[in-house]
Design a protein around this nucleic acid. Structure first.
Lengths: 190, 190
DNA sequence: GTAATTTTGTGATATATATCAAATGAAATT
DNA sequence: AATTTCATTTGATATATATCACAAAATTAC
């Protein structure tokens, strides 16, 4: 989507696909910058939050509760978009999103952008490309998680998202991979 | 997308979101009906096929080869769309798609439709909605496959896609769930 | 800087599932 | 209808990983 945006203007200037003056002018009212502390909860399970966020700086974890235990679904860092896609269809989120670090985010108002999409083909195609990217990203995750022996799942994650192992506690990663934290610790020892 | 379409006109008349006369007129040249026998291979791993297909009648399996063994990624039936989304970004397919039964399909020319999307906002939003649905569907699959004990993965699949157990060999289903066919057979016995 | 809390690592046992082998059952082919 | 091929079931053993218990290390808070 965009690389290393620090402000709304950065974001709109550098985003992919490129936007014309008129499209950025239309989009701008629906974007805002927010600074939030570690452990802030952006999205709550079973609720509709109405926003998606681009991470300028920081990190987040996504997880849902299953019989009282946290099951992790992903971790995001700079230049990634977080927030439930289900918002676009007015479906409640299935996961919580919490900040792992102090963060700076750009918030997008979904309802406003969806209205724009009906009128402006450039905005429609911009969102289109972003959602397509997300779908392809989900496919990648699906393939990696589908790997059978635990050590291959571990290797796939390490190969495709090494940053996770630098910035996320092992316990959360184990929960994402569907293995116990002890097993992950032992796998990593090799 | 559409329910129970048997012809191109059916499809265009009943599709969701609704299309106007002018949009259906633009789309029509890029659709065609094909009848294919069981075991026909629609999409080959590592190739770009340039089409996606809507299943009017029939069933398919999707799988990739890992060290010579087939690992299944999904099964599709009537009223579902198959074909690699990666085509939209000119990326080769990661999976093979093969028909499990004699089938009738509507083929969509991706390049043609992508050109239309640049000009016609109605077509853009139609494809938009379809891709969004696909992304949400991938999320659902991801959540179900993320279930930890094998019996929960099994139950989740049975609950959300019972048809699979009627029309797909157990061996393929076990391969999708990432468990051995013996274990699946024993799980089902309960 | 010390205490408290959280995170990670190591060992011992229990358990689920893979694997191997063989038998039964169902479909497709001639 | 008979034969071949493919799919499912059942049993016995091996193996990987979960679980439990605790120790060590690293972070965070005071």
């Amino acid at each position: 989507m965009t690389e290393n945006a620090k402000t709304i203007d950065d974001f709109l200037r550098n985003c992919e696909p490129k936007l014309t003056e008129s499209a950025t002018y239309l989009l701008k009212p629906f974007l805002s910058v927010v600074s939030l502390p570690k452990k802030h909860v952006l999205v709550k399970e079973k609720q509709i939050c109405g926003k998606v966020y681009f991470i300028c700086k920081g990190a987040s974890r996504s997880f849902y509760l299953q019989n009282g235990v946290e099951v992790h679904t992903w971790f995001a860092f700079e230049n990634e978009v977080i927030g439930s896609l289900r918002n676009f269809n007015n479906l409640p989120s299935r996961e919580n999103i919490e900040l792992l670090e102090e963060s700076v985010l750009i918030a997008f108002d979904i309802a406003g952008i969806q209205t724009l999409m009906q009128e402006n083909i450039e905005v429609a195609n911009f969102v289109n490309v972003t959602i397509l990217e997300y779908a392809l990203f989900m496919e990648d995750k699906f393939f990696d998680l589908h790997m059978k022996p635990s050590n291959e799942k571990f290797s796939a994650l390490l190969a495709h998202s090494p940053e996770i192992f630098q910035r996320v506690p092992l316990t959360y990663i184990a929960s994402y991979l569907g293995i116990s934290r002890e097993t992950l610790s032992r796998l990593r020892a090799k």
